[in-house]
Design a protein around this nucleic acid. Structure first.
Lengths: 337, 337
DNA sequence: ATTGACTGTCGAAGCGCTTCGACAGCCTAT
DNA sequence: ATAGGCTGTCGAAGCGCTTCGACAGTCAAT
């Protein structure tokens, strides 16, 4: 293993000079710089991360805490994680992967040990038990997701309430009067995940303003669960002509079941999905949808975090505006019989 | 920030004693140990990771290199990543997330800087450009996936060739004579990803031995691509009654298209999928499938790696035996007309 | 009693880096 | 000619930990 001292010797300068060439924190003459850089290349020198962290009091590592569950939006989580890792690298940071398993202890451990300089938390619940810890430390952090109280926190999220409203308004604007919302699994609501509740809020207020009737049904994914849910929906509201689906694994089952029941999309029934674009275009009917901008969420989170690490900017809530893309699954409500 | 020295002072012992209490590398009297542990708890001490890495020459970090692409088996990748992170924690390691983006440079950087003690590589190609680097370093590594030449490497993977054979034998055993293989996207074969080619090899040799005809067609996922592919298959081999699908995003489209064409599953056509169990049971027809044991692959990879780090065991190729679960999508071939 | 082997603890060195203060050499303004 | 200010480089201290060798004390065997 090559050390700074060896590079210094090879280049005929002192260790501190090499360090300053590397960090750029003091001016170095062009000649010296070139000689040092040459030596670094020739010897294949890589600064030792541990020594750097110890002496410099920064690890250049960002911790990313992802949910342990694989029941929820897996591709979205993955896309966020990859965007975080990629963006972090462009700022000179590496990413440490933590699962939710350890819970608040992971926050303590990472903060306390100086393993990471900062952290990004995903899958934030409305009353998340990790929040007091974050507020109580001076280590920068960014949440992807919105807790109930955002005071003293930096958050990045899709504006779910606007997303719900957008879906509601779209269907209402097409003349639908009875709308069913196929939501995430019941467990998601039970643990008070912000995005699910907020979407519902947005839908409700849109419904109120447009005089539309809303029926919300949580739904585990898959065919069987969806079949049951759908039967109940039509049972309770036979006149339902609009669907908003916020559950990736219910999308395709819903389309198949509607087809099977002889309800044409979009002639008889309109469907709006809240899902990644890829899912929307790969479905059996190209879906009108509000995209989940996973990549952008990951990127923005890192950028906010790096800004904080550089002492730029403070706490802030970044809400990304939803965009509805009209595709083939939504159209005017059929004339009432 | 609390340091070792402060803990030592608080407990009335020397720093080295505290260190030995922590590491257990020398015997400590029960009384001293308790006093030290008490002080650690009271002060909320966490050893500084950088200092540890520097002095101990181990970072207790495992690097995990995941593919940048999100076009391939995303849930599988995610599940592996989570299993790796979870298993690593139980052995006292954290996980550093690297994307394939940096390519071989990432290997150099991590190895050279001592950032990680070892690494796990996913999405290994048959002639992967990272392999020479791994062979040339004494840092332990494990591949998830099998390159062409496994000499001097430790690999963990599903036995894809056996998987292909198992699928072929299952369908042949049910009397099917014409089998179509719906594979991954053409790009996957072009970049010589081992698992895709090996599965095909297994299928081919099973076909040879059972006298079955095989038609292999790569396929991008989604409905449109699948529709095109399916049309070509029946065009070329009208008598096809068995399908093997190795492409998550083609599974549901295939089922829908078959249904649409009036071909009943499993009465007219049998389908065997190679996919995670969750996909198999959530599909519109519960699919006979060979599961991709993502969790186990992640777990085994970490365990092999930890063994190597502890100086136990050397290079080894671990092939997990495939298991075919018979569900509702496969049955006897229909009598020939 | 004396030796020898353990046990439990300590002090000090050192891991590879960053950073602070010092200073030589040079240039510009007086 | 001299003071003052830059620029570029160096030496040394120190970050918080691990680990090695030393050693005081205890106990069993001679």
């Amino acid at each position: 293993m090559v050390t700074l001292a060896e590079v210094a010797q090879h280049a005929g300068v002192s260790a501190s000079t090499v360090s300053y060439v590397l960090s750029g924190k003091r001016s170095i003459s062009a000649g010296t710089r070139q000689r040092v850089e040459q030596s670094i290349r020739e010897l294949g020198y890589h600064p030792n991360a541990g020594a750097r962290a110890l002496a410099g009091k920064r690890s250049n590592i960002i911790a990313l805490m992802i949910p342990l569950r694989t029941d929820l939006y897996v591709p979205v989580m993955m896309e966020i994680a990859i965007a975080v890792a990629t963006t972090a690298r462009t700022h000179g940071y590496d990413v440490l992967l933590l699962t939710g398993e350890e819970g608040p202890d992971a926050v303590r451990r990472v903060t306390g040990s100086g393993l990471a300089d900062a952290m990004i938390l995903m899958d934030v619940e409305l009353e998340d038990e990790r929040l007091p810890l974050l507020r109580g430390t001076d280590q920068p952090s960014v949440l992807i997701g919105l807790p109930a109280d955002t005071g003293g926190l930096t958050c990045v999220d899709l504006d779910w309430s606007a997303t719900g409203a957008l879906c509601g308004e779209h269907l209402a604007g097409l003349g639908h009067r009875d709308i069913a919302v196929i939501g995430e699994a019941p467990a998601v609501y039970e643990r008070h995940t912000g995005f699910a509740e907020r979407t519902l809020d947005g839908l409700r207020s849109a419904a109120r303003e447009t005089g539309v009737r809303l029926l919300h049904r949580p739904c585990e994914g898959g065919y069987d669960a969806m079949a049951l849910t759908l039967a109940r929906v039509f049972d309770e509201r036979p006149g339902t002509t609009g669907f908003v689906v916020q559950n990736e694994s219910a999308v395709e089952p819903l389309l198949a079941l509607l087809r099977q029941q002889g309800r044409a999309v979009p002639e008889d029934v309109s469907v709006v999905a809240i899902c990644p674009d890829q899912v929307a275009v790969q479905a059996s009917v190209r879906l009108t949808s509000v995209a989940i901008p996973a990549q952008e969420m990951g990127r923005r989170a890192v950028e906010r975090l790096v800004a904080k690490l550089d002492g730029r900017g403070g706490d802030e809530v970044v809400l990304l505006a939803p965009e509805l893309t009209r595709r083939a699954s939504s159209g005017p409500a059929p004339a009432a019989d």
